[in-house]
Design a protein around this nucleic acid. Structure first.
Length: 467
RNA sequence: GGCGCCGUACCCAAGUGGUAAGGGAGAGGUCUGCAAAACCUUUACGCACCGGUUCGAAUCCGGUCGGCGCCUCCA
């Protein structure tokens, strides 16, 4: 089944055709590790995980590369003083290297808890300074750069297609609207490839280069590392929507200028998470982290489920109410799967009947249509509730769908009780037979204190643990 | 000012010109010693508003109102 993706380059839905048959090279812009990722950042990584799992589900062998931006870059709108990493280091009384390592680990932990499959390659900017220098040298040789005020700039005038991704030619740039204009730039859209003169007082990370001791510009790392691991041309580059006008635009310019080839075929961008009505941003101070949600009693997978409820290209409104709804839905789902598994083991996918196949087809169709995950979730619920499917079929289909959704359905199994608890349940059943309901209710109350809920059914008493 | 996105039930939200997915919450019912779970039924003659195209519009076109994002930190 053909996969259709919305390509920001061209702004249309396009059939995905890989460069190499059966394989996909995919680069995802990773986190900047000077503080904890907030749940808005994490939405993007959940989307990328879904994209990667979808392609694998459709039979592609995926090479997924994600970078870690551990070189500090700028502070805020004022753009002066210290860089992010330096400031964070000062506040935490740690070195910039320790800060980067600490938040990198925190991020990788978030990924694990959200059940994000680990990228094939995770690469740190600071491990690839030489690759960046080589790329800048190449650009310099071809005449795409100029030196001014101690820095090396990329000259956008030399690259005619500049801004194609972001439709910048249709926009009027309001230069200096938010940021002071860099007096050394020939064109306001020019950007720095290598700094030797830091804007910051206490620049901590510095490297030697042909242009002097300094540090790389922000955009060069993604070009250098993606081409190192995926080649000069690859299939998909993704990230959040805010990266389109500057970061990705500049990446394209420097990459294609260096190689003279088209760099990336499909650009796939995820929309923002909104906090109430506004965007969630570190600078606005209205952000929350996965840790915050856990402290409020949510499971990271509740947040994953919540994100799956909205399409990746549409802004999603976060609220505690909406997250609670997602949690309730996920717990119901998990409970249902536990019940099914208790009765059966999954059948072979090849033995699924017509009715079951229609769900699988629907699911794949929705996936293929620009990752319509909300519809896929709807298909999943359809399977769970269908009265014509056998339990074995249901379980097989659910587990198959979950390879994409990543809700850990394979772990939805009945927990174990100890012998004393099992005995108490048997005693209670005995009391019920004697119609000693006062005693029976007391025992149920006692089990509830131990976190066990009882349900009396015509087939006997069932129990489950409270989450 | 320029560019882009979006207004669907109490809430989140899908919708690919053919008669409004799904989840949550609420209500009624079946079952039950009670409870819970499960299941069944139910909640938008209508998709911000006004025109237009069409046999047919939530979907396409134009306009109005409202919201969000971006315009060199940004997921």
């Amino acid at each position: 089944m053909a996969l259709y993706l919305y390509n920001t380059l061209g702004r249309t839905l396009q059939e995905f055709k890989p460069i190499t048959h059966g394989k996909v090279g995919m680069y995802a812009c990773g986190p900047t590790v000077y503080t904890f990722a907030h749940i808005g950042n994490l939405r993007t990584f959940i989307f990328e995980d879904i994209l990667r799992r979808t392609m694998e589900h459709l039979g592609y062998e995926v090479t997924h590369v994600m970078n870690i931006t551990d070189v500090g870059h700028l502070t805020d709108d004022a753009d002066q003083g210290e860089d992010k990493m330096t400031r964070s280091a000062r506040e935490k009384k740690m070195s910039v290297w320790e800060i980067a390592e600490f938040y990198t680990q925190a991020f990788l932990n978030d990924m694990k808890e959200l059940n994000l499959n680990s990228p094939t390659v995770i690469c740190k900017a600071t491990d690839h300074i030489d690759d960046m220098i080589e790329l800048i040298k190449k650009l310099e040789k071809k005449g795409y750069t100029y030196r001014a005020g101690g820095n090396i700039y990329f000259d956008v005038e030399r690259f005619p297609d500049y801004g194609k991704l972001a439709l910048l030619d249709k926009q009027e740039l309001k230069a200096g609207a938010r940021i002071q204009v860099d007096e050394y730039k020939r064109n306001p859209r020019d950007f720095v490839l290598w700094f030797t003169r830091s804007k910051f007082d206490h620049q901590a990370m510095m490297w030697d280069s042909p242009w002097g001791r300094g540090y790389p510009g922000w955009h060069i790392e993604c070009s250098a590392m993606s081409m190192k691991y995926l080649g000069e041309q690859f299939d998909i580059h993704c990230g959040a929507i805010d990266l389109v006008p500057v970061h990705h635009t500049n990446e394209i310019a420097q990459s294609e200028a260096a190689t003279g080839k088209k760099w990336v075929n499909y650009w796939v961008h995820g929309e923002f998470l909104l906090m109430g009505e506004d965007k969630m941003a570190k600078s606005a101070g209205n952000f929350i982290t996965l840790k915050d949600l856990k402290e409020e009693g949510f499971d990271p997978l509740d947040y994953r489920y919540f994100c799956l409820g909205g399409h990746y290209r549409v802004q999603l409104q976060f609220s505690r109410e909406a997250l609670k709804a997602a949690r309730a839905a996920r717990l119901h789902l998990t409970e249902r799967v536990k019940e099914i598994r208790e009765r059966t083991s999954p059948s072979e996918l090849s033995e699924i009947g017509e009715k079951g196949k229609s769900y699988i087809d629907s699911f794949r169709g929705n996936l293929s249509h620009d990752l319509n995950i909300p519809r896929c979730l709807s298909d999943l619920w359809g399977v769970v509730k269908d009265v014509e499917l056998s339990d074995a079929e249901k379980l097989a289909i659910i587990l198959d769908m979950d390879r994409v959704l990543g809700l850990r359905m394979e772990e939805a199994k009945r927990e174990e009780l100890d012998e004393a608890q099992l005995q108490l349940i048997r005693d209670r059943e005995e009391a019920r037979r004697r119609k000693d309901f006062v005693r029976a209710d007391a025992m149920r109350e006692e089990l509830k204190k131990q976190g066990i809920i009882l349900e009396d059914t015509p087939d006997g008493t069932r129990w489950k643990k409270i989450e």
